[in-house]
Design a protein around this nucleic acid. Structure first.
Lengths: 259, 259
DNA sequence: CACACGAGTGAACGGCGTTCACGGTAAACG
DNA sequence: CGTTTACCGTGAACGCCGTTCACTCGTGTG
């Protein structure tokens, strides 16, 4: 059954074989990404062929096709998150609202230009038979980034968040023990209401982007991104950014136009 | 290439062969639905076997596997829409807001209990390689239903909608010539701003439901539906239902608890 | 009656995920 | 040093898939 590769844990330098193995892992994911980028189907055989190997050999590294997909999805999420962060960096840290807006605008642009990658990461697990909702995806780097950036906004302007004790029971529990890593863990208990606002914001963002990517929006509206922008404009005031809405939406519009 | 079945258009009664053919069509879709319901994989061979036929025979009815999927998705959308409408009917037509809320709550419940059907209809086209965003899906019965119900709310309370001339250029064009059939077509031009509100509302609803179905929400929050309810509560005021929010959210909460 | 056409079949092709028995090569050990 | 062991990769095979093609019925039409 070959347990998931006996990593040296914290042992000293990795041995030759281990380095080799790690390199092959990387090449597998890289090849898979290449396939996706070129519009090819993602399959074990195709990945193997790209590496000059045969499909069964890949089973020394992944237990199944779906594990390969998970691996790739994880990597896509990480790469994309780096890209979102880079978009935010184009503006000084003293303007956290602008950074947040640029990052989520980049999220939308990325999703529109890489729909297959997007759906792999964000709409993947449900297509297979015999799966129930629940069990959140591992790919959460982007969610953590957005939460952190929203947290920066909150640190700057302390927009109002619901009191923990006013939240419904289940929500309170979820907020007090967040499933996704991030800055919420370090918040004092009284301020954990922030997490609830973050979830709602994420739902808004994800919703409009998914709707656009999956083709449920009038084609003529897609390029302009007006639906996305209006969602942005509607949510910003809840983040204490009411006075800044026009500037922020303008920022997002400019970035969309530039893409 | 056998154009898509030479229907008798508006000709008198259908001939024997045509009735037979129509029945087979129906049985194909029915068998496919059965497979989905039972958690089996959807495949031409499986559908054929279920009907006591062989796979190649299906090519007399559908041109390809993906056309079968489209057919099934269309049917799922229709069935589900009937279900949403039935949920609305449990409350008098004099209370359009309650009807709308019950319908979309049923939409969420349906999506959560039939995730594969949901993703077939609402997250389908992007997974295949070589497809660009755009070209909206045919499955739009549910969208039309929700728009109509929102329109009923608007007729009752005339909540404010943006003036057509205030809308961005592309939005105005889309609103003046809607892609989805519905009551907007019969609206006087000055009132077409309603369509923009409808799209935004649909984006909200779709977003939170998709997020939940695709497992990007804390498991503990799923059953209660609090994220959905809070989205509802946040959007209702924009529909001139500010005074009614508690009642409407209560209605939705009760229906979720009952399911 | 003869004809044409529609529906359905079986065989086949290439591709897929996956399993398995087998070789070779590099590391690990005495 | 030699030997053992563990790992990496192969080729063949299985059963599934979508799809094509030549073929056979049986029915409806002229």
């Amino acid at each position: 059954m070959s347990s998931p590769a006996s990593r040296p844990a914290s042992g000293a330098e990795p041995t030759r074989r281990e380095r080799q193995r790690e390199a092959t892992y990387a090449e597998i994911v890289e090849s898979a990404l290449g396939l996706l980028r070129e519009g090819e189907d993602l399959s074990l055989r195709a990945v193997a062929q790209r590496m000059g190997m045969t499909a069964p050999a890949l089973y020394r590294y992944v237990a199944s096709y779906s594990e390969l997909v998970d691996l790739v999805a994880l990597r896509i999420d990480q790469d994309a998150t780096r890209r979102f962060a880079a978009a935010a960096e184009t503006v000084p840290a003293s303007d956290p609202a602008a950074r947040l807006v640029l990052a989520i605008t980049e999220f939308r642009t990325w999703a529109m230009t890489s729909p297959r990658e997007f759906s792999l990461v964000f709409a993947h697990p449900v297509a297979e038979p015999g799966c129930r909702p629940g069990e959140p995806l591992t790919a959460a780097a982007s969610a953590e980034l957005f939460t952190t950036m929203l947290h920066d906004v909150w640190r700057a302007n302390r927009f109002p968040v619901p009191a923990v004790e006013d939240l419904p029971e289940v929500v309170r529990q979820a907020v007090l023990d967040p499933a996704i890593p991030g800055p919420q863990h370090h918040l004092p208990v009284e301020e954990r209401g922030f997490g609830w606002v973050a979830m709602q914001g994420w739902a808004q963002l994800y919703g409009v982007v998914a709707l656009e990517v999956f083709g449920h929006v009038d084609v003529r509206l897609l390029a302009s991104g007006e639906l996305f922008l209006s969602t942005l404009g509607r949510f910003a005031p809840q983040l204490g950014l009411g006075a800044d809405v026009e500037r922020l939406v303008g920022l997002a519009r400019a970035r969309i136009a530039a893409a």
